[in-house]
C-alpha cells in the first residue's frame, strides 16, 4: 500500500463520517432572504404601532395596543415565518440536488426533529401568551425558542449555526430585560443576524 493510497483512504473515511452525520446543504442565501423578510415585517410592524395614538405617550406599547393592531402584528409575523420557511426549504432542496445529495436523509430528519422540539414548544407557548393577553413577552420568547432550536439542531449541520443560536438567545434575554424595544430586538435577531449569517455561510461554503 502506498502512502498516497493511505491518505486517500483516510480522507474518504473522514469525508464519509462527516457527510453521514452533518447536513451541509443548508443554503446561506435562504438566511439572507429570511432576514430581508423579517426586516420588511419589522418595518410594517413599526408603521402599525406608530399609527396608534399611544406611541407618543412613551409608555410600554405592548399593553396599550388595540386588539386589531395586535392581530395585524401577529399576521405579519406569521407571514414572515411562512415565507422564510418556504424559501428556506425550496433553496435547500435545490442546493442538495445541485450537490447530488438527497435532501431527505437520516441526517436531515434528525436535524428537523431536533429543531422541531424547541420550535413547537415555543410556538405553543407564544399562542398561550396571546390567549392570556400577555403580549409583552411574545417577541423575546420567539427569539429565545428559535435560538434554542438552532443550538439543538447545530450538531447535525454546520457548527456556525450554534453561534447564530447563541446570539438569538442573547438578544431574546436582552429583549425580555428591556420592555418597549421588542421590535428593535426582533429586527436585529431575525433580520440583521440572518442576513449577516447567510452572507457568511454563502461565502464560506458556496464558493
Amino acid at each position: 500500500m502506498e502512502e498516497k493510497d493511505i491518505y486517500s483512504e483516510l480522507s474518504s473515511i473522514r469525508n464519509l463520517m462527516e457527510r453521514s452525520t452533518k447536513f451541509i446543504s443548508l443554503s446561506g442565501l435562504s438566511g439572507v432572504m429570511a432576514g430581508i423578510y423579517a426586516l420588511i415585517g419589522a418595518y410594517l410592524g413599526c408603521q402599525i404601532i406608530k399609527s396608534s395614538d399611544i406611541w407618543d405617550t412613551g409608555e410600554v406599547m405592548s399593553f396599550h395596543l388595540g386588539q386589531e393592531k395586535i392581530l395585524q402584528l401577529f399576521l405579519i409575523a406569521t407571514l414572515v415565518l411562512v415565507l422564510s420557511l418556504t424559501t428556506g426549504v425550496w433553496l435547500t432542496i435545490r442546493q442538495a440536488n445541485k450537490k447530488g445529495e438527497s435532501s431527505w436523509n437520516p441526517v436531515s430528519r434528525r436535524l428537523l426533529f431536533n429543531m422541531a422540539i424547541p420550535l413547537f414548544t415555543g410556538g405553543l407557548f407564544i399562542l398561550i401568551l396571546i390567549f392570556r393577553g400577555d403580549f409583552a413577552l411574545i417577541a423575546p420568547s420567539s427569539l429565545l425558542f428559535y435560538g434554542l432550536a438552532l443550538v439543538a439542531g447545530s450538531s447535525y449541520t454546520f457548527s456556525d449555526v450554534k453561534w447564530l443560536g447563541f446570539c438569538e438567545i442573547f438578544l431574546g434575554l436582552f429583549s425580555a430585560l428591556l420592555p418597549g424595544y421588542e421590535i428593535i430586538f426582533w429586527a436585529l435577531g431575525f433580520g440583521v443576524l440572518h442576513i449577516l449569517y447567510g452572507a457568511i455561510m454563502h461565502f464560506k461554503y458556496n464558493q
Binding site: S12, I13, L16, M17, E18, S20, T21
Partner: peptide, 8 residues
Amino acid sequence: QIMSVLVA
C-alpha cells in the same frame, strides 16, 4: 466505508 458511516 460502511464501517465509518456506522461508527459515526
